[in-house]
Nucleic acid binder design. Structure first.
Lengths: 144, 144
DNA sequence: GCTAATCCCTCTAGTAACTATAGGTTCAAG
DNA sequence: CTTGAACCTATAGTTACTAGAGGGATTAGC
């Protein structure tokens, strides 16, 4: 019989909170483990591995749904690999996209921060700068 | 009397959904407008300006709480401007931080995507690559 | 073998920042 | 004056967890 361990140990060995582990089980990402006589969860090494997979993917910004799809895909080694590859590529695209948008924000915030040189709100342009459109691409115009 | 306009018009002139406008009112970011005889909201230009301010700040990644603080600050033009400046600076710091972290992710995802050259899941390394630690700084180790 | 401390259980509700739905009322154009 | 779009409130759902209450289980030390 393979050695088992408690939810607390799974937590400390993965850096994932106990509540989060139970949450992942409740939404079907982690298989339900066996239970002790007293109804406590007893995990196997396979659970540890699966949880690390989930945590890494989350760290990389993947949604729970994307991870769920990867898990489904991985169950069938004969399936074409395009699906898994595609999910990772999409994620890469969205990360690059976020970087681009954040860089625009950075420049804009820089402008906002630099616009302050007074010492009273009345003289400070931070709030004014935020009220202006600046680099904003929002579709708005005067009401009428 | 200043001209007033409906919530629908405020929505189309700002690009903010009707529900979101009502939501901002409910949490106290937008002042409650007057109502028509039939209880419908009637906005003034000042509401339009305030909403744009909120939307720009949100676009720049500020939390509702930060925006609320800016609004409170702006009500007193004699207040020292450090508060407003500080909020914008914090935001700038957190944006720079996010960019840094996303760049790390980008490199890691690039690695994951490049690791696929098979055509069956069994040969594809995308899933394996995600199961490995790679650049992860998570505090985990084998369970015992 | 017993007891205290620690761990674990379920269930419910809360978080941010909206979004959506249901069921009903008002407004404005023709 | 009718009709259809726009509006109203209230409630519940979304994502990905986190926190709390009120209990039972396990384990380390004596």
């Amino acid at each position: 019989m393979e050695r088992t361990f408690s939810i607390g140990r799974l937590s400390t060995t993965t850096g994932c909170k106990v509540e989060t582990i139970r949450y992942y089980e409740s939404i079907g990402l982690l298989d339900e483990p066996e239970r002790s006589e007293g109804n406590q969860r007893r995990y196997l090494k396979s659970h540890h591995e699966r949880l690390l997979f989930i945590l890494h993917a989350r760290d990389l910004g993947m949604s729970i749904e994307a991870i769920r799809q990867l898990i489904v895909l991985s169950r069938d080694p004969e399936a074409p690999c395009d699906g898994a590859d595609e999910i990772a590529r999409q994620q890469l695209g969205s990360v690059r996209d976020k970087i681009q948008r954040l860089k625009l924000l950075e420049a804009e915030l820089q402008r906002v921060v630099e616009s302050c040189d007074g010492h009273r709100i009345g003289d400070c342009r931070v709030i004014e700068a935020l009220a202006e459109c600046g680099a904003c691409h929002r579709d708005h115009r005067a009401p009428r």
